[in-house]
Every structure is written in structure tokens, then in C-alpha cells.
């Protein structure tokens, strides 16, 4: 690992004017990304930011690193090529709910399955913004949009479910307003060797304003959000008196000191377990039955990832093969000479 370089977040800002709408949740995310890059101390030329198409996919223009603005849905595939070509690069994929889960669904799950050492940030605003307000694969059922004037009749994806289904090792979630949490998660994700997916619940002020109001409402947010930390009790609430327990095969939100529940009953978060059982339930928690989970929900450490396996295999083959140059290959096998 190279020595940590001292950077300021401003070192990662490009000279381009940021063109997201005022109040858009993407601004918060971008701040956090700049901060995380500075904190990581990886030299600027070794970062590559790749995106697809959509509002969030404009990010490449707003970072002062190498960056590539791709085509709709293909960011995960383009990133995969970048990373395999040069595993030494720190690759960020920035995508949205339409880009990653509709047109790019296939690349999304396969990048995770291969365990590419890439940090994929999915800005989920539950709507198509850049095309002006059509429903997305994460729009809630019944949502009225330009293309669902009578309400959608499609159940939405839960992005984390796809991550688990694709054998994902790292999944985290933050709100667009959680600048500090996002920064922490981005740093962790970049240091994690394997595919890391971070879902940012992002408010679209124009086409889906208030989608997360129930969670972010100042009065109640502490009761409706839970921040998970590996090794710590799953506690939430204004008074820190609520927690999650396992009730049979289900999670249950309880109040400590009520109905006989004590602190000892509260689950300790284990992000590092391979078993996805609890992670899946944490990912699926929704208000009002549960608080919504934030933080690093799953981070199963692996020593291996695609690039390291490829390198190992390549070295094995090179060591065993007698052919190391094109001239040797061209002259190998059955040949004959015409005088």
C-alpha cells in the first residue's frame, strides 16, 4: 500500500460547475465522497470514478480524478474492465436506481458475484429524475408518476436483497443527509477488498420530494432510523431505549424495560458473519414496523477477490508454460518447413 498522502476534500473537487438542482440529495453525497477521498490518502491519479446515465451519473465531472461517464446501465461493466486492466486503481462506480437496477441490473449482480474490488454507490431516489419523473424499480407500489398516473402496480426491489442474492460481501446504507456516516462508509468500502455496495437514500426535490420524509422528520427520526455498528448492540430511539431482538425467526423492535425485555436481550450487530440470515432481515426492515437500518450492514472479510485470483492463476500458468513470447507460440505444436 502506498503512503497516505495529505489531502483536503477540495483537492478532489473539479473545476466544473455542479449542475444538480438546488436541494438535491446528490450534493451531500458528493461532499462526503470528496471527504472520503481526502481521508483515504490514495494519490489522486489512482482514483477512477465511473458512472452510467442519470442525475447521479454526472458525478465524474465533479471529481478531480480520472473519471469516465459511460452509457446507461453499463457503469458496473465499464468499471470491471478498468479494475481488471489495472487492479492497482481505486475504482468507484456511481449509479442510480434506474441505472443499476433496471437497464443495468445484469451488470450490477454480476459485478457483485465476481467480487470485483470496486466501490459501487447507488443513489436511490425511487424515481427517474433526468427523464423527468417516471417510476423506477425502487418506486413504492402505488406511487403516482408520469408513467404510472393511476399508481404503479409493481412491487419494488430492495437493492440490498439483490446484493445478498448475488453473494455480496459488503452492503451499507446511508441517507443523503448523513454526511459523516457516508464518509465513514466510503472509507471502509474503499479499504474492503471485494465488491462493496453502498445505497444512499437520496431525496429528489423535483420529482419525488419527501420520499423519505417519514424517516427524516426531525421529530421522529431517532425512532425511525437505527445505526448499526459491528460489535455493538442494535439500539435506537431518542432515549436509546429501543432495540432489536430475535423473536423466533423474526426480528422484533422492542423497548428496553417494557414487556420484560432487558439490555441482555438486544442483539449485537455482526456485520462480518457469512450467514446472511440476520443481514437480510436488517436490510428488509421498513417503517412503521421497524426502524430503517443504516451503517455497514454486511462486511464479510475475504482475502480473495477477482483481480487477486486472476493474478494468481496467471502466474501459475506462466510458471508452468514453456511459451512466453509470440514467437514461441507461433512456432509451437505441429509445424513443417518448406525448402
Amino acid at each position: 500500500m502506498e503512503n497516505k498522502i495529505q489531502y483536503q476534500p477540495s483537492d478532489f473537487k473539479s473545476n466544473q460547475e455542479v449542475r444538480w438542482c438546488p436541494g438535491c440529495g446528490d450534493h451531500g453525497f458528493l461532499n462526503a465522497l470528496h471527504k472520503a477521498m481526502a481521508e483515504l490518502g490514495i494519490s489522486r491519479e489512482n482514483h477512477v470514478v465511473v458512472s452510467g446515465i442519470g442525475c447521479s451519473s454526472r458525478t465524474p465531472y465533479y471529481v478531480n480524478t480520472y473519471a469516465f461517464h459511460g452509457i446507461h446501465g453499463r457503469a458496473a461493466a465499464i468499471s470491471t474492465g478498468v479494475k481488471i486492466a489495472n487492479p492497482g486503481l481505486c475504482v468507484w462506480t456511481v449509479t442510480g436506481d434506474g441505472d443499476a437496477l433496471a437497464i443495468g441490473g445484469n451488470h450490477f449482480i454480476h459485478m457483485i458475484r465476481r467480487n470485483m474490488n470496486i466501490n459501487l454507490i447507488l443513489l436511490n431516489n425511487q424515481i427517474y429524475g433526468l427523464t423527468k419523473g417516471q417510476y423506477s424499480p425502487t418506486s413504492r407500489e402505488g406511487q403516482v408518476t408520469k408513467t404510472s398516473p393511476y399508481g404503479t402496480i409493481e412491487p419494488p426491489f430492495i437493492p440490498g436483497d439483490l446484493v445478498l442474492g448475488a453473494q455480496g460481501k459488503f452492503f451499507a446504507r446511508a441517507m443523503d443527509t448523513h454526511i459523516k456516516l457516508q464518509t465513514e462508509i466510503f472509507v471502509e468500502a474503499a479499504q474492503f477488498t471485494g465488491a462493496s455496495v453502498i445505497e444512499i437514500l437520496q431525496n429528489c426535490v423535483i420529482f419525488n420530494d419527501g420520499a423519505y420524509d417519514l424517516l427524516t422528520d426531525k421529530e421522529h427520526r431517532e425512532d425511525r432510523q437505527i445505526f448499526l455498528k459491528h460489535g455493538e448492540k442494535m439500539i435506537f430511539g431518542k432515549e436509546k431505549n429501543k432495540g432489536l431482538i430475535l423473536d423466533g425467526f423474526k426480528l422484533k423492535a422492542v423497548t428496553i424495560g417494557e414487556d420484560g425485555y432487558t439490555m441482555d436481550d438486544i442483539l449485537v450487530h455482526n456485520a462480518k458473519t457469512q450467514n446472511p440470515f440476520i443481514h437480510m432481515m436488517l436490510i428488509g426492515m421498513s417503517y412503521p414496523e421497524y426502524p430503517v437500518a443504516f451503517g455497514i450492514i454486511r462486511a464479510v472479510e475475504t482475502s480473495d477477490n477477482y483481480a487477486s485470483k486472476l493474478e494468481r492463476q496467471m502466474n501459475d500458468v506462466k510458471a508452468k508454460s514453456k511459451i512466453h513470447t509470440m514467437d514461441e507460440l507461433l512456432n509451437s505444436g505441429d509445424t513443417w518447413t518448406v525448402e
Binding site: 461493466a77 478498468v82 451488470h107 496467471m314 508454460s321
Partner: peptide, 23 residues
């Protein structure tokens, strides 16, 4: 692989060209 060539069978035709563009 003995010549250091990275040949990747990907999930579809589009990923084929897009990984190549990334590379």
C-alpha cells in the same frame, strides 16, 4: 494466460464491449 492475456467471459454482449472500453 501464459502471455499475460486477460480474456474475460462476461454476462452478456454489452458487458463484453463495456468491460473492453473500461480496459
Amino acid at each position: 494466460k501464459n502471455l499475460g492475456i486477460k480474456a474475460l467471459q462476461v454476462e452478456d454482449e454489452i458487458a463484453g464491449i463495456c468491460t473492453a472500453i473500461g480496459a
